[in-house]
Amino acid sequence: MTEATQRVSENGVSIWLDDLSRTRIESGNLQELIANDNVVGVTTNPSIFQKALSQVGPYDAQLKELGKVDVETAIRELTTTDVRNATDIFRQVAEDSDFVNGRVSIEVDPRLAHETEATEKQAVELWEKVNRPNAMIKIPATLEGLPAITETLAKGISVNVTLIFSLERYEQVIDAYIAGMAKAAENGHDLSKMASVASFFVSRVDTAVDKLLEAIGTPEAKEMEGKAAVANARLAYELFQNKFANDPRWPALAAKGAKVQRPLWASTGTKNPAYSDTKYVDELVAADVVNTMPEKTLMALADHGDGKVTITEGSFAEAHDTMNVLAEMGIDFKEVTDTLEADGVAAFIKSWDTVIADVQSAIDRVNA
Rank of each mutant, 00 (worst) to 15 (best):
V83Y: 02
D332A: 05
R76D: 15
I174G: 05
Q92E: 12
P263F: 01
E128P: 01
E125V: 14
S9F: 11
P248D: 02
A362N: 06
T81A: 04
L143W: 15
P46V: 07
R111P: 08
A4V: 00
L301E: 00
S54H: 04
A229H: 04
R76C: 14
A233Q: 02
I75A: 12
I174S: 10
T337C: 12
A185T: 08
G57N: 08
P147D: 09
I356C: 00
G145H: 03
V281Y: 01
A236S: 13
E117C: 07
V205M: 03
L298F: 00
S14D: 08
T44H: 00
I25Q: 01
A254N: 03
L253T: 10
S199M: 03
V93F: 08
D37N: 06
T44N: 06
D210K: 05
D358F: 02
Q55A: 04
K155P: 11
A300G: 05
S97H: 06
S192T: 07
D206S: 09
T80L: 07
R111N: 12
I106Q: 02
E125D: 14
N11R: 15
N131C: 09
S203N: 11
L146S: 13
A135Q: 07
E120K: 15
S27M: 08
A233T: 07
E117L: 01
I216A: 04
A229K: 00
A368H: 12
A266I: 01
G307V: 08
D306Y: 01
S361N: 13
G314P: 06
N134P: 10
F200E: 10
L20K: 06
S47N: 12
Y177H: 11
L301K: 01
E115Y: 03
E283K: 09
L66V: 12
H320T: 12
I216R: 15
T339F: 13
I25M: 06
S47V: 14
G188E: 01
L301Y: 05
R365T: 15
I106W: 00
G344L: 06
N246R: 07
N160I: 03
S21Q: 04
R132H: 13
W16D: 04
I25R: 06
N246M: 09
T81Q: 06
